[in-house]
């Protein structure tokens, strides 16, 4: 059976605006992916724990409140701590250009800003997941 792309989508922080992330979830689903949407107010440990349990290829988060410079690094940190550094982290929201550059330097695979078509995110994810490889032996 062909491997499906599995992606976890979550909203960290206190911001409840979920229109964008639901549109992205639907678009990913319609591009043939399995999307695990874990909803609002997810803390970095909750997000990374869910990503590990669901064995996802990527984590996508959406932040519109301005707390991105706190939350992205916290999630990266948690991923490192839990040995989940191989999972791609990407995100979207109202994120100024300077911050976007800083975050991508920090290890966030990609930041999408308002107006980006969902197709762009789909294309990014398909290519990025295809590049990933694992040499782990199962048994």
């Amino acid at each position: 059976m062909a491997k499906k792309i599995r992606v976890l989508l979550a909203k960290p922080g206190l911001d409840g605006h979920d229109r964008g992330i639901k549109v992205v979830a639907a678009a990913f689903r319609d591009a043939g992916m399995e999307v695990i949407y874990t909803g609002l107010r997810q803390t970095p440990p909750m997000i990374v724990e869910a990503a590990i349990q669901e064995d996802v290829d990527a984590i996508g988060i959406s932040i519109l409140s301005g707390a991105h410079m706190t939350l992205f690094p916290a999630i990266l940190e948690e991923m490192k701590k839990r040995g989940a550094g191989d999972i791609l982290l990407f995100g979207g929201g109202i994120i100024p250009e300077d911050d976007k550059i800083a975050l991508e330097k920090m290890g966030v695979a990609r930041i999408f800003t308002p107006g980006a078509p969902t197709e762009e995110a789909i294309d990014f994810l398909q290519k990025a997941v295809a590049r990933k490889s694992s040499d782990e032996k199962i048994m």
Binding site: G13, L14, D15, S65, G66, M69, A74
Partner: peptide, 17 residues
Amino acid sequence: LPTLMGYDSDHPRSLGE
């Protein structure tokens, strides 16, 4: 947001907001 969600400013969930 912490005020809107009923958290004090020093609550862990308020961090960055």
